[in-house]
Design a protein around this nucleic acid. Sequence first.
DNA 1: ATTATATATATAAACATTTATATATATAAT
DNA 2: ATTATATATATAAATGTTTATATATATAAT
Lengths: 193, 193
Amino acid sequence: MSLKYALLGFLNYADMTGYELKQHFDSSIQHFWNAKLSQIYPALSQMEKDGLLVMEVEYQEQRPNRKVYKITAAGRQELKRWVGTTMELQSVREAFLVQVFFMAQLDRESALGVMRHQLEQYRKRLENYHLFKKSFSEVVPAEVFKEDAVFWELTLDAGIKYGTAAVEWVEEAIEKIKGMERVKGGLEVSHDG
Amino acid sequence: MSLKYALLGFLNYADMTGYELKQHFDSSIQHFWNAKLSQIYPALSQMEKDGLLVMEVEYQEQRPNRKVYKITAAGRQELKRWVGTTMELQSVREAFLVQVFFMAQLDRESALGVMRHQLEQYRKRLENYHLFKKSFSEVVPAEVFKEDAVFWELTLDAGIKYGTAAVEWVEEAIEKIKGMERVKGGLEVSHDG
DNA sequence: ATTATATATATAAACATTTATATATATAAT
DNA sequence: ATTATATATATAAATGTTTATATATATAAT
């Protein structure tokens, strides 16, 4: 469960409400970890019970009160412990590869259709990473965040590396599928006359 | 939920028990999708209720009876529909990147320690993929599985591509961390005297 | 005028997944 | 002799995650 640590990580920079935390998820770590508000709110309550956070209500008129969470010393310690922990490799979960594994079920053209659609999606995602990286390089981070920004950018680089690998893999896969002997679902065309 | 379709996919090749299905998971799609027996058994029951499978009991003495599942026509149809469906890109979930994102918390050496450990793990995983690929190339698949084997190998190629990207990324990340200005957690060493 | 988006929290229900526990025996390895 | 592994299924409990629903208002866009 990285959600808890992501919340601690953001609250280590500033006190925030659940709503604001969600915005940080969406604008920074969204490409490798995301969470819905319906998961964030109960998580914050639980972490408060566990003494990792304290909550203070900011009263508002005509709107729900803001519940501002603040990280405690115990929370800071738990965050620091976790970022320094070496962990087992988590297992990969890639539904698309399950699809590919059983794709011999499909005729050639349908298979190519699915692969090309995936290629388009991978390309768009990669392009977004590149745009993000560009805007990232243009903004010089404040002195206090210089150190942090190096690591933030590393996670973006990971996205670009994986994204590039994904695009290249599908491109090669498409060529291999095109080159398959036409046994099922197509004519066996002779090219020597 | 790909579990259901993975089960349909394997049962499309042969009738099997839950236990045998688990073995297929472990020996073929494990590197991009896995499941515990405690997830597989209830899933099979549900799929039987839904008419995608039928079950027949093989009586055994001194052991639990074997419940052999067989795919139905409806199951075959559902499998074929699913493999031909273009889907939204699923979001990435990579706990390690959350760790990296907040790693400025750590002193330089601890950060490098965590990264090097991850590099070792990525390398081992990649090496396994390469070994698998080699053994895969050596075994000539039976005529009936020629077509299928192309797709099976494609999923392995994906593992190798992603695995290579992961190794390269951490290697580069380590160099970047080494090159960071030493602001916190270390001596600022002067090299000009 | 109407619709969409943003602000702000909360809960219920459903779905997906892991960990733990229970049962029972055969065979292979140390 | 003892331990580990393989065969075979099942359920409970806990955890993690998504979808849906509810409430209430302000502001921006069409």
